[in-house]
Simulated assay, not measured.
Amino acid sequence: QVAVNMVIYGFIVWVPTFLMKQGLGMASSLGYTALMALGGPAGALLGVLLADRIGRRKGLIAVSVLTAVIGWLYGHSTGIEMATLLGFLLFTLTYLMVALGIATYIPELFATENRMRANGMAGCAGRITGICAPQLVVMMYAAGGVKDVLTMIIGTLVVLAVVLAAFGIETNRRSLEDIAPSIDTNDPLPASSLSQ
């Protein structure tokens, strides 16, 4: 949640501003952003098609690395046509991460007794990131422009890939009981009390 919200609120929502700061007018900036934004539905559709085929953990690692590479290329693109194509790919990959991570992977990590609470805590961490990311973008942009903003986002994606590779578990084609075993019924704190 933290990494995905960093990409969304650190890059995606700032694209029109970045394009205007690079010399495009408001109408042109919004037009190119609209073209890039078509990647959102494409990424969600790819998530539907790929989540069960490639797995959530492996998919998130691959997409994080690919997004970092495309982000670096976007930061070094010289023409608006190339920036638009790379921006479209960034939107697509970002919403593919939403589909693989937020919609499928995170909810599958927790035992039934804790799923709503744990998923809510993950969502809260993501929302806090969504609040802080714009302020970080302003500071990074003032310090070094779009390239510094992209460096921050690329760093977040690399951390995501490393954490998932080191600690993540694959949830694809596994039962929830296998992933997160239910609380022992002999436990002095019954499962029903956890839901309160």
Rank of each mutant, 00 (worst) to 15 (best):
Q1H: 11
Q1Y: 14
A3D: 11
V4F: 15
V4S: 06
V4K: 10
V4M: 14
N5R: 08
I8G: 06
Y9C: 12
F11I: 07
V15C: 07
V15E: 01
T17I: 12
T17S: 13
T17W: 13
F18R: 00
F18Y: 15
K21M: 13
L24I: 09
G25A: 10
M26I: 14
M26K: 13
G31V: 04
T33I: 14
A34T: 12
L35R: 14
M36K: 03
L38P: 04
G40F: 14
G43R: 00
A44E: 03
L46A: 07
G47W: 01
V48I: 15
V48F: 09
L49C: 03
D52I: 05
G55F: 00
R56C: 02
G59K: 01
L60H: 07
V63I: 12
L66M: 08
L66I: 03
V69H: 06
V69K: 03
W72R: 06
W72S: 12
Y74M: 11
T78H: 14
T78A: 12
T78K: 11
G79V: 06
I80H: 09
G87P: 02
G87Q: 01
F88P: 01
L89R: 01
T92V: 02
L93F: 14
L93G: 05
A103M: 10
I106A: 10
L109S: 02
F110C: 07
F110H: 02
R117I: 13
N119A: 13
G123T: 10
C124T: 15
A125Y: 11
G126R: 01
I128V: 10
C132R: 04
C132E: 08
A142T: 07
D148K: 07
L150P: 00
M152D: 02
I153F: 12
G155M: 04
L157V: 11
L157C: 13
L157E: 06
V159A: 05
L160V: 04
A161T: 00
V162D: 14
V163S: 08
V163Q: 08
L164Q: 06
A165P: 01
A166D: 08
G168N: 09
E170L: 13
T171M: 12
T171P: 01
R174W: 02
R174A: 11
S175P: 00
L176F: 13
E177M: 05
E177S: 12
P181L: 04
S182D: 13
I183L: 15
D184R: 06
N186A: 15
N186P: 02
P188E: 04
L194Y: 12
S195A: 12
Q196V: 13
Q196N: 14
